[in-house]
Design a protein around this nucleic acid. Structure first.
Lengths: 145, 145
DNA sequence: ATGCGTTGTAACTATTGACATTACAACAAA
DNA sequence: TTTGTTGTAATGTCAATAGTTACAACGCAT
């Protein structure tokens, strides 16, 4: 069981936007070429990022740009933009209320699982887009040499 | 996107085993009654827990018991027993190698996403079965009053 | 040793979500 | 108005979860 590829794809898109802004026209076709998925996936993802206030998209003429400073965007922002914000774990539906265990599992487990959820979110929040950009630039530079 | 209900179900089963051991015969039918899922799901889950060395199951006669001290079992053990151990995030398959972004996203993102993975695992590892049992007993006691 | 209740599995189905793809209306600039 | 693009709906495919039925293998009790 794992998450969809939405977060990686969205991050890839953001990195492209920063890298190519001003140099290329960032249409969904262009982005689809780098990410290597269908342009409609790009448009849907871009739509979610736009709703979340992370990017601006020029309808008609085409092209996407960041709406915020890369230092102000964390992976948690991206995650929340593209994934449904629900609990990490899916609790089984109807534990038996007449069983001493069944009627309390929820109470006992929910807190702990929320903690796991929070740990994951905190880690995502600790990574900002600027860091990724710096890493990326570094890789690109060291490749040229 | 979220995990399956396997971890909650497996934890529920373990709590039942501890709570009812010696008092009830812990057949898959009995457990299915508390968890409220199909007995086959219980048997499959129990099979995974057995493979992981967490429980012992008496075939034929029926009945399940812990194979380890509840203090020695963490939620990470349970998680690993019942979920496929793969990366939390599914990376999109073939980023364009001819694009400066596409050929480096993996390098840039993998470490960070592994970090998120590790954070989640660490949190799971910090919760042991004994703690859950204590919590559960406490809830049961305070209800009686 | 035979019958009974249980486990271990395989097979089948239904449901859901991810992702790809086609199609087309809405939109903005030249 | 033409052109290229976005936004979005509709559809198809695939994989995973979970429910269910069925039955062989197993182990105790009589």
């Amino acid at each position: 069981m794992q998450f969809s590829s939405r977060l990686p794809i969205a991050t890839h898109i953001l990195l492209c936007i920063v890298t190519f802004d001003g140099k290329e026209k960032l249409t969904s076709d262009f982005l689809a070429g780098s990410v290597n998925v269908n342009p409609v996936i790009i448009r849907n993802t871009l739509g979610k990022l736009k709703t979340a206030g992370l990017v601006k998209v020029d309808a008609g003429i085409g092209g996407a740009h960041l709406a915020k400073d890369p230092q102000q965007i964390t992976l948690l922002d991206v995650f929340r933009a593209v994934e449904e914000e629900d609990d990490l774990f899916h609790f089984h539906d109807n534990p038996n209320p007449d069983c001493p265990v069944g009627c309390h599992v929820h109470d006992v487990l929910d807190d702990k699982l929320d903690g796991v959820n929070d740990a994951m979110k905190a880690q995502l929040a600790s990574i900002c887009l600027q860091t990724l950009i710096d890493d990326l630039q570094h890789k690109i530079q060291s490749e040229k040499e």
